[in-house]
Design a protein around this nucleic acid. Structure first.
Lengths: 319, 319
DNA sequence: CTGTTAGCGCTTTCAT
DNA sequence: ATGAAAGCGCTAACAG
């Protein structure tokens, strides 16, 4: 591969200094219309391509954004959510000439965060699954955005609203004994649904029937069994993940309980197969890629403020 | 944030030259045990962290690996496969101090490939969905690995074997009139299953019954209807994606055709919900993350040779 | 508005 | 085995 043309060649060809060429091509600093024209032309003729790495080094900025998920399970990236987030972030990073790296963070992640901050190849950090304490332990001097609630910059999905919409839908359909297979405390994403459920039940004067699950079908089965034995007259079961809902559906089918006639069921997330199975799973869909994209963008821009994305209820046949 | 220690400080503290410090810390070039010890100690005491960007610039290498998928649909990244591949690649890239950028490539992608090659921030390209012509159009002087068949470096899933295993399983269960909902020509990943099907049917002396679909439930429904009207005595339907299989299952259910008693069905890929629904979908599972990881690694190492990963049949209740 | 000149932090010849 | 010095390609003060 023959040597690629550099800024110096462009400057020479345009008859201006290196600095001027840099100014017009990078868009920073002043430049007369005349030289701007000259430099542009020279760059085009020479097929000049800036060298992002050199630029970043000179500016002291990093080359990649780290997308980190804090979770109890080291396999957290295997969740359907993980891949979608990675894809969204990588798309956004690409627009900035950067790349994204994935990291898994244990629940206690102070050390890891410090490591990330010390890595000068890191341009920004996008954090998911954090709690209050994590946010406070965030090293200063590191561009950060969050996926999920936080005071700083980032993006989030309004899962409280989405979950509430699902509950309201059930209520409208006449369901009054609604049970929840919620998530464990450490699962940050499960907090909003749990609170939305508690609030709705309280306000509507309905009984609070919650058991703890996670995001697997196995725990969905377990949850359903517990619910049916503790509250046999339950007429709806809401869950925090589609897989959990699928587990619930299994138990219901085994026991000859009709869905949605006897018991309605809802999932959460709208994974690929949710709409393809029969009965189609009522759930809420989340623009995960766009959320990750927005968070990535926010981290890079250093813009403060949270952007909230909708959690849209998708009514199918299980309700 | 106070200024971070650089190599010069380490060298000074160790009482050696910058060059020597560089040699021991980067592991390239000779160094006496004595100075090695000195430099290591100094680095540790100072909490020295190398600056990856500077290193990469000095070496003239890029900072990110581009993961590009060639497809007819610009939305290709939204496939379940996309996110998993992105996650795997980002994990591998991270280990090398790099990041991953995602690109969509149209079927005719020569221009795009040239662009990628001209971008000096690109350390390597991992290509998926390519065909023969694409491989030949690959710009020289660019580290490349493929996900999918190729003569060079990369990783692939042995989907021919996986699909054949599924067919053999059906045959063992006594199925003799097996129909295929295949993929369109342009969908590279559909080639191996199609050929495996054609070959198996021929060798077993069974009738060849194939219709064209894609990776959606809608085309699965359409495919199933076509198959049932053209070959009403079909006793098994194999597909190239779980969503397609789900579509097939819908049509079968609508018509009161029992699964697997009357007709067996198989999917392909083992998406998250495949095992959670009832009847559980028989399919083949693919270590997509590990494949992307291996391809990424291969591209960065510049190591030639393809690594083949198994496509493992997962028998559940639809067969 | 423009040119000169130092860096950015590390690698890598080239002598010694 | 080691050191001096020349880059890698670009940006950003600083003068003018």
């Amino acid at each position: 591969m023959d040597r690629m043309t550099d800024l110096a060649s462009v400057a020479a060809r345009a008859g201006v200094s290196l600095a001027t060429a840099s100014r017009v091509l990078s868009g920073n600093g002043p430049a007369s219309a005349a030289s701007r024209e000259l430099v542009r032309a020279a760059a085009a003729e020479l097929g000049y391509r800036p060298h992002p790495v050199a630029r970043l080094l000179a500016q002291g900025r990093g080359t990649r954004v780290v997308l980190a998920i804090r979770d109890r399970r080291p396999s957290a990236w295997a969740d359907p959510f993980g891949g979608r987030a990675a894809a969204g972030a990588a798309l956004a990073a690409d627009r900035a000439g950067l790349g994204v790296a994935l990291r898994y963070l244990p629940l206690d992640c102070r050390g890891r965060l410090a490591e990330i901050a010390a890595d000068r190849s890191v341009a920004a950090l996008v954090l998911a699954g954090h709690d209050r304490a994590t946010l406070e332990a965030l090293p200063r001097g590191l561009r950060v955005a969050t996926i999920g609630p936080s005071a700083g910059a980032g993006a989030d999905v309004d899962s409280a609203a989405g979950f509430a919409a699902l509950l309201r839908h059930l209520h409208d359909r006449g369901r009054r004994r609604i049970a929840l297979v919620g998530g464990p405390r450490w699962l940050a994403a499960a907090g909003a649904p749990r609170r939305a459920y508690a609030r709705m039940m309280r306000e509507a004067g309905l009984p609070h029937r919650a058991v703890t699950g996670d995001v697997t079908a196995a725990r969905g089965r377990l949850g359903a069994r517990r619910i049916l034995s503790r509250w046999p007259d339950t007429d709806a079961i809401v869950t925090i993940s589609d897989a959990t809902a699928a587990g619930v559906l299994q138990v219901l089918a085994e026991r000859g309980i009709r869905v949605p006639d006897d018991v309605a069921v809802t999932g959460f997330d709208d994974v690929p197969l949710a709409g393809a199975i029969r009965p189609g799973l009522t759930t809420a869909s989340h623009p995960v890629e766009r959320i990750a994209e927005a968070a990535c963008q926010a981290a890079l821009d250093g813009s403060a403020g949270m952007r909230l994305f909708p959690s849209r209820a998708v009514v199918r046949q299980t309700t």
